[in-house]
């Protein structure tokens, strides 16, 4: 049976039967990757685990690092690839054999850029050159993460975020090399 004919063959079988059709477009499940609440929670969890305090005791994180961390957190099956990528950073021979395209994937995550813009507009984060800083308003960013933890949500993502803490992430990696 050819590729093109399978749907046609099905249509023909149904046409010659008493089958009654239905169509429920509302049953298309949108991908969670584009769920704003989910993405905000993941960013908050990444920030909580990986942000560091600066001299003025503001918690901050490199924007590019946050982008990489959240990308892997919501695609936890990529963690072994990042671990290999990190481990091979001083060994060009070893580095050559890990996937290059996967290294660049996170750079094109435009949804994340929009989530960050949303969080900045909402007063959760402040952009400070190459960093993102916790705006510190009423501990809202912390509260989001606290709610996620207390509700035991996104366990897999949170575990990946913690595991990422054990990896060295270099500037070259943040540029996709």
């Amino acid at each position: 049976m050819s590729i093109e004919s399978s749907v046609s063959a099905l249509a023909q079988l149904l046409a010659n039967s008493t089958a009654s059709p239905y169509a429920r477009p509302e049953r298309v499940t949108p991908s969670t990757f584009y769920d704003l609440d989910y993405r905000v929670c993941v960013v908050a969890a990444c920030f909580e685990v990986h942000a560091k305090e600066d001299e003025a005791r503001y918690r901050r994180i490199l924007s590019a690092k946050l982008k990489l961390l959240q990308f892997i957190a919501i695609r936890s099956w990529l963690f072994p690839i990042v671990r290999e990528w990190s481990a091979s950073r001083d060994d060009p021979q070893r580095s050559a054999w890990s996937s290059q395209s996967l290294r660049r994937g996170f750079l094109g995550d435009s949804m994340h850029d929009e989530v960050i813009n949303y969080m900045v507009a909402g007063g959760l984060l402040v952009k400070a050159q190459s960093h993102l800083v916790d705006a510190g308003v009423d501990f809202r960013l912390r509260d989001i993460n606290r709610n996620v933890v207390s509700s035991a949500l996104f366990a897999r993502e949170r575990k990946t975020i913690v595991d990422l803490k054990n990896l060295t992430i270099t500037n070259a990696m943040l540029e996709g090399w």
């Binding site: 590729i3 093109e4 399978s6 749907v7 099905l10 149904l14 008493t18 089958a19 009654s20 059709p21 239905y22 169509a23 429920r24 477009p25 509302e26 049953r27 298309v28 499940t29």
Partner: peptide, 24 residues
Amino acid sequence: VSDVAAGEIARLIGECPIGWVNPG
């Protein structure tokens, strides 16, 4: 793209938006 197009229709049937019932 042809394979993916066929796959997307199969997916619509599999994930339920498009279906059929046996009236009898």
